[in-house]
Design a protein around this nucleic acid. Structure first.
Lengths: 344, 344
DNA sequence: TTGTAAGCGTTATCAC
DNA sequence: GTGATAACGCTTACAA
């Protein structure tokens, strides 16, 4: 009867001696079918090893059961934490989560989005290479629920969940000033990344408000937000003439900070005594560093969870209105900035 | 005509003034349709914003375009590197990759597998909680291509791609002995994890072969392979009476090693002078540690790539035979075991 | 080269 | 409570 095919509702119906509609009812509205036939059908399903075909279901029902997250950088644990937050929310809603990685390349991003469109996913969460990209608008125009994660657009054309990066920059530098530092470096780049610009802006703002001279806030640009770039920035820092050399560095993310920490310790500097370091994101490896890293904490999982909730609302609530959620980051002080080194 | 619906081949056909079969041909066998009509159809597609419905395609064609990887522990960057290797291979084959995370829970694993079965994915790659679990056999029995990644089964009932963990344990400890260490700790657990057992076994083998006393190879069990457990093991290590205290530790993975490193440095020990440390996996953060970590390197991306190739072969080659690939890991010596600390 | 039509496995709307 | 039956959007023979 089956000759190797994977069994369908039809086969189950035949085996259970009922019609195919009844089998469908057992799956989708079990309350409407009598206990006896339900059990008979379930037994048949088990015997045949029936597994519902999701493509057929989706085609007919017109509704998909998966969400997707297109992340920006698979090498940064931060995004995996965000993804985990999304996954938890998806799980609660009994949805699958499709995770893609653009690796910061707009072209990969477009390929992924196109595929997701073809799959007719219920909604897309994305940390885009460029939040203003026009192909993102097109998704919304198509009616596909879309939430931008950890980034924002200028307008309010879609939902987004982000963190106040300017504020983050402010509290990072404020903390360093409180610790008595007179010359501070900001390490981060490229400038094309909105986050980097805003964190740097926050740093300058507070520095200015505290009455410091702009000359004492030194910008060391990097080409990416990676450990390797952090090391390289460390070398440049060390190369500065002593009278200009900062006693503290605020890094645009934790990977940079980890790289800087490594380079500094390798070069024989003591952290925080010779150089204090603040990172951003508060990924797990920040707290796990040899000198536990002070960092501006983003609510990573919360970010993901909130984003998932927005996308689900947009998908199911006809009265949905776009929202721009904005979390406030917090400083987590650890040994890397302590006036005297302390434990994590 | 469309009233808000998303356009279908039918709509495209109408707009282009051709039949629906022709539209399909444009997508699937463009060579059989004349240039002129092809262009007309393509223009209509663009104007309508047509996106092919993958569910319908899959249902009719009977073939899916996605692979899936069920990873064991999303908090361990090692698995993300493996995933990236798979993704690259998938990309080459023009397939999408569905990434799931079981977080070491067999129950989540089963939920994911069930969903993937429903999606009729082309093949599944998995780093299972338990490679002997019977539900894995069932997938194979269903004819679903399955490859076990970074783990092996006793029998040869499916493809697998793994690393010689016993050998890894051997070279780690051999290296420590070469550096002159007389008492060594093995840190790792729980024993239910095959990897842990084999790395420990390799350690004992070589220790024995080198004529050392079993009493000088101390096993400090952990409850998980995490940074936190590494720290806790460090505390226990420090608590050992001085005459029994090892001068070197071999950790079952890099997360443990990182935790141990942090705890040790925090406690004022010098690494490697007071305590040498070897990790396993060689994740990026191992090289990025304040004292760059010596580690047993697994070919992370290669593992993923090879696994993807096996699953694709099983999916498309009727003469496919199951293979058990077995990579040999290499020791990457860094400062954490140098007799005199050196740079990364 | 293009058109026609059957059918993939489901769900949902009806009668019964 | 249960059973026919018509879609859903696409691919693929086969006919024209």
């Amino acid at each position: 009867m089956l000759n190797g095919r994977t069994p369908s509702v039809k086969d189950v119906a035949a085996a259970a001696g009922v019609s195919l509609g009844t089998v469908s009812n057992v799956m989708n509205r079990p309350e409407v079918v009598s206990t006896r036939t339900r059990e008979r059908v379930e037994r048949a399903m088990a015997e045949l090893g029936f597994v519902r075909n999701e493509s057929a279901r989706q085609l007919r029902a017109g509704t998909s059961r998966t969400l997707a997250y297109v992340m920006l950088d698979g090498n940064n644990p931060f995004f995996h934490d965000v993804a985990q937050g999304i996954e938890l929310a998806a799980e609660d809603a009994d949805l699958s989560l499709f995770i893609c990685n653009s690796n910061s390349r707009a072209e990969r991003e477009e390929v992924h989005l196109d595929r997701l469109l073809q799959q007719r996913v219920q909604g897309i969460l994305i940390t885009p290479v460029n939040p203003e990209a026009t192909y993102l608008d097109e998704l919304s125009r198509r009616g596909l629920p879309l939430v931008i994660v950890d980034r924002r657009r200028g307008d309010e054309s879609c939902c987004s969940v982000a963190v106040d990066d300017v504020h983050g920059g402010r509290i990072a530098v404020e903390h360093l000033v409180e610790q008595g530092h007179m010359r501070v470096a900001f390490i981060g780049g490229p400038d094309s990344i909105g986050q980097v610009r805003e964190r740097w802006q926050g740093a300058r703002e507070i520095w200015d408000e505290l009455g410091r001279s702009p000359d004492d806030l030194i910008h060391l640009p990097t080409e990416a937000l990676t450990v390797a770039e952090g090391r390289s920035a460390g070398e440049r820092l060390a190369g500065l003439p002593a009278r200009r050399r900062p006693t503290a560095a605020f890094c645009a993310n934790d990977l940079l900070a980890l790289g800087l920490l490594q380079q500094s310790i390798g070069a024989g500097l003591r952290v925080p005594d010779d150089l204090a370091i603040v990172g951003f994101d508060d990924i797990e490896f920040a707290a796990a560093a040899a000198v536990p890293l002070t960092s501006v904490r983003q609510p990573r999982q919360e970010l993901g969870r909130a984003a998932a909730q927005l996308v689900l609302d947009e998908a199911s609530n006809p009265k949905h209105r776009h929202q721009q959620l904005f979390f406030t980051p917090e400083l987590v002080a650890r040994a890397s900035t302590a006036t005297r080194p302390r434990q994590p």
